[in-house]
Design a protein around this nucleic acid. Structure first.
Length: 424
RNA sequence: GUGGAUAUAGCUCAAUUGGUUAGAGCGCUGGACUGUGGCUCCGGAGGUUGCGGGUUCGAGUCCCGUUAUCCACCCCA
């Protein structure tokens, strides 16, 4: 066992897995662009108060999962546990909503939470998130949901379930909350210990308690208690999703763990994951911008875990396209030939080819095996004979064919010999 | 924070009721007309059996501790 290893709940992406990551990232970026979202990048740490205020003091994230430390200036800083508060902070700080009243942004960034690792759950994970700030139109809700859902589809994922709910707004939630408490109060002794506390602190969370799943089914639903505005909003979101062909299921027990959500709440789960089956989730947060010191503005967004994308893809057997193959491998025999090879590699790279050579002075056989291993399209063989003749042997690794090409011609007309996908 | 399982070459795994120099496949590496890959054949390197104690004539196998990993609860991405 190595003396030093990656910290619990973290991991390394080694070159063999990097191709899969790059593929996922490029699909995500392409899709975000297709929907008109622009990228934002914010620092990995923030003032601790941003999350206490934004994410919510009562949430599990803030209460027990944050990596918080004091820097040498005595400031309390926190590695971001989620992406939305930092993004809102940045939009407010840069007055983005004054330049343009409706902003669409996405991010691809690491998040940190002190949790007990298990399948699909880490202490550092990477989130793809998107936010639309500045409009309370149901169009925005539907667009954000469609972005997440179509991205997953583009990645080849199937067996997806989109769960949808509305958690109301400050106008109608308090009344629903009372209704819920009135419903559960007489049945307190049938609930689990956690829920007996939740009824005081946050009764809505009783709804997504797994232990009390059965006892929750006949509880009153938020969707039956929405105020007219929230009900109309929810109806339009559903209609829009139908129009977009995004399948969903109403889940009246879906309650998200962050304090700022209003109205729409959603979650996308995969059949191909373990206990942690949510690929992503989000909702509307119409009070957050004001909460964080900006002029009041509504918003809606989601966060999704890239590690879970990859995990679901692997479990589902989705093939990841190969990365680009190297164009040319230069095999050299002897010191003089190696020097010439270095020179040729430099010239070819200058023309835009992906090109490499042996760095260990190995046998020709070993060099060709290496060229084959990295799936090079062509091999240039250079030895004493070639040096004397002033020409290299150009071998086509696919057709096994080989021909002689003068060094000088190589420089000027390499494209003619390489009718491959080389970008000259 | 709680519970369960696991820990043997780079990787995936073997090793009879505790018993001699801990094996295999893959990978790596060298060779099979001293300069030509994939297939085949032959050879080589590589392990203080996670770490620390204990029981025993003898421990990879049993016991205790510890660390790490995995899975689940909680919660979430």
């Amino acid at each position: 066992m190595a003396k030093y290893q990656a910290i619990k709940g973290t991991y390394d992406v080694m070159p063999a897995e990097a191709a899969a990551w790059q593929h996922v990232e490029s699909v995500v970026r392409r899709q975000a662009r297709a929907f008109g979202f622009r990228e934002v990048r914010t620092p990995v740490f923030e003032d601790t108060a941003l999350f206490v205020k934004g994410t919510g003091e009562a949430t599990d994230i803030v209460q027990k999962e944050m990596y918080t430390f004091t820097d040498k200036g005595g400031r309390s800083l926190t590695l971001r546990p989620e992406g939305t508060p930092p993004v809102i902070r940045a939009l407010v700080e840069h007055s983005a909503l004054k330049e343009s009243p409706c902003v669409k942004v996405f991010y691809l960034a690491p998040m940190f939470r002190y949790e007990r690792p298990q399948a699909g759950r880490l202490r550092q994970h990477t989130q793809f998130g998107a936010e639309i700030v500045g409009t309370d139109s149901p169009l925005a809700d539907a667009e954000v949901i469609a972005l997440l859902f179509t991205t997953l589809a583009r990645l080849g994922l199937s067996g997806l379930t989109l769960r949808l709910n509305s958690v109301g707004c400050p106008a109608c939630r308090p009344a629903y909350r009372d209704t819920l408490v009135a419903h559960f109060r007489p049945r307190l002794d049938t609930l689990c210990g956690d829920c007996r506390e939740r009824i005081e602190r946050n009764p809505l969370r009783i709804l997504d308690c797994k232990a009390d799943r059965d006892r929750v089914q006949d509880a009153p639903a938020m969707t039956d208690c929405l105020c007219p505005a929230c009900a109309a909003h929810f109806d339009r979101v559903k209609a829009l999703l139908k129009g977009l062909g995004v399948p969903f299921a109403i889940d009246k027990t879906l309650v998200r763990g962050l304090d700022y959500y209003t109205r729409t709440a959603f979650e996308v789960a995969s059949q191909h994951l373990g206990a942690q089956d949510a690929l992503g989730g989000g909702g509307r947060y119409d009070g957050l911008v004001e909460q964080l010191g900006g002029d009041p503005a509504p918003g809606v967004g989601f966060g999704a875990g890239l590690e879970r994308f990859l995990l679901a893809m692997r479990n589902q057997g989705v093939a990841v396209p190969d990365g680009p193959r190297p164009d040319i491998y230069v095999a050299a025999l002897g010191t003089a030939a190696s020097d010439k090879a270095a020179e040729l590699c430099g010239m070819l790279r200058g023309k835009g080819y992906a090109c490499e050579q042996d760095l260990q002075g190995r046998s020709l056989k070993a060099q060709l095996r290496e060229a084959n291993r990295i799936n090079a399209r062509y091999v240039l063989v250079i030895g004493d004979d070639e040096l004397a003749k002033g020409a290299a042997s150009l071998k086509d690794m696919d057709t096994h064919g080989q021909r002689e090409v003068p060094f000088a011609e190589l420089a000027d007309n390499i494209e003619a010999y390489c009718e491959c996908s080389c970008q000259g």
